[in-house]
Nucleic acid binder design. Structure first.
Lengths: 171, 171, 171, 171
DNA sequence: GATGAATGAGCGTTCATTCAT
DNA sequence: TATGAATGAACGCTCATTCAT
């Protein structure tokens, strides 16, 4: 599964081959079928695992504004630290358009993120953060979109998320 | 080429087959090879054409702030009108990571967009737009990232770009 | 198709491989798929052709008794001349049990044979042949069964069909 | 072994899989290899067992004619009662053509049957049965062929064997 | 210019078999 | 004795590409 993830990161779904995955794992390609009946099953397992670790951390304590800031900082660091993880996640977004099984997994994970973002933004607004005028729902979408877009060019993610933080919190 | 674009929009690179393209165009699949020596050549042609029409329009007249606003509005409308075009563009972003030929084409187009965004933002700031504090370079990256991210979920693009406009222009 | 028939005759369905068929025909195995989309399609074509040429000849003229005798003689000669054809036909009988597509083809051909046998026997009886007491329907089944059984041991087919002729016509 | 027989009856040699056999027996497929080193060994065992129980019963007492009649009746009932057994036997006939090991087993069993049939027919003829003119050797072949052919269409076996009895004994 | 037969590398998958546990 | 992970050869099939027509 780790091998599959790395193959996916390198070549995308287009170049994902059972034989390559097996080769990278140092096993025979038919051995994979001993653990995953089909390629799709392997993919689902990888996706499940990958999106599981994509959950962004939010500091549990502090003012809502600080927690929002912390969340954005964590996102920024994650893109910097594991740029390929986010590339894979975008690959998944695209594939989910034609794969209902993936779509459900991904939508579920994203919905969790969306909800937590909305809550964060609403709380920040309620606590008198200067971002008061921003609709939490729209704010969440903007963060999600900016992160997704930034993950396609990790070297510019700092610019993107830095500015976004300033605009949303206006500190 | 039109057929190839539509196949790409439907199934991505992963499901792009010469035979399907030919079938959609109503010709024999061998005939494609008379116009494009290889599949890659066809892809390059499609990409060239697709990214060519992705250039966003900016109103030539009006105050810099109005022109920036017009540019963002044009982007928003484009995502709404041709959501699949933007999905294809994201597909290209991903593939460009492993395909230098595509990378060059796409980078070149994107650079043009980036430059025009920076100019727009700088002019707006210079003309006293309330977005004064925003670094034009970072602003351009944020717009690009937000548009790319929004194109993966066209139905939320309005939220994203609407809020972005407000935050950047603070009207 | 001829190559497929010969492979079938040699190894049965159990050992029927697209690559072997292609090798025997002197072409690449993928070329077969140019003409027959699937292995099953090739099989159906072969079966259709094979059962088509399995139709036994009946002399058009002469007394009913003579025509019946001629039919049996033709069967006997066919088994002697092309023993492998009849082996293939038995292979088909067996496979038809699990393959509805084949079953229909084979049942249709066999029904034609059955009808013609019944007619032959009924006419012979009506014309005073000494086989008078034999029910044409049962007689047809006995001929069919004997031929099928004899085709599994071609070297004894003469004994089987010779005796059957004597018993049915009692000359 | 019982599981293997049933798999064979359902799908023939073509669909005989060690895993299916094991699954039907409720054990791991590797476990089969503890009892039978290879698939062929399992097949041989099954064949040996199957052809062993195919031996037709002949009433030990009574006039030769009655015993012949009893033998044919037993055959008829066996096909009716266990039609799939006879289908498997035909499957074996076919496979024996390419498998010397099977061929020997089957030929040996069949030879026993043939001998007993010949004896039966000769005795019946010697005891003045009206089948006098029939060559016992040819008669045995006809019975064997008819039974084999009839086993491919069990629902017509009664017609076939009923008529055969009448013709051979002319009662 | 267009066709379609042909190719061959390569795909996901199957399956009998082996072997360490 | 029984398991299940692992193997590797082979399967049906796909697909970009070539080439004679």
């Amino acid at each position: 599964m780790n091998a599959a993830y790395r193959c996916l990161a390198e070549g995308g779904f287009e170049e994902l081959r059972m034989r390559d995955v097996a080769g990278r794992a140092g096993i025979d390609h038919s051995t994979i079928h001993h653990h995953f009946p089909t390629k799709q099953a392997l993919i689902v397992a990888v996706v499940d695992h990958t999106t599981g670790q994509s959950g962004s951390t939010t500091p549990p304590d502090g003012s809502p504004t600080d927690r929002l800031r912390g969340h954005l900082a964590a996102l920024r660091q994650k893109i910097n630290d594991q740029p390929e993880l986010h590339v894979v996640l975008r690959e998944l977004d695209l594939r989910a358009r034609r794969d209902p099984e993936l779509r459900e997994i991904i939508a579920s994970r994203e919905e969790g993120w969306r909800t937590s973002l909305r809550t964060l933004l609403a709380e920040a607004a309620a606590h008198g953060a200067p971002t008061a005028g921003v609709d939490p729902a729209a704010g969440a979408e903007l963060v999600i979109a900016a992160v997704k877009g930034a993950s396609l060019a990790a070297d510019r993610a700092d610019d993107v998320l830095g500015l976004l933080e300033r605009l949303l919190i206006q500190a």
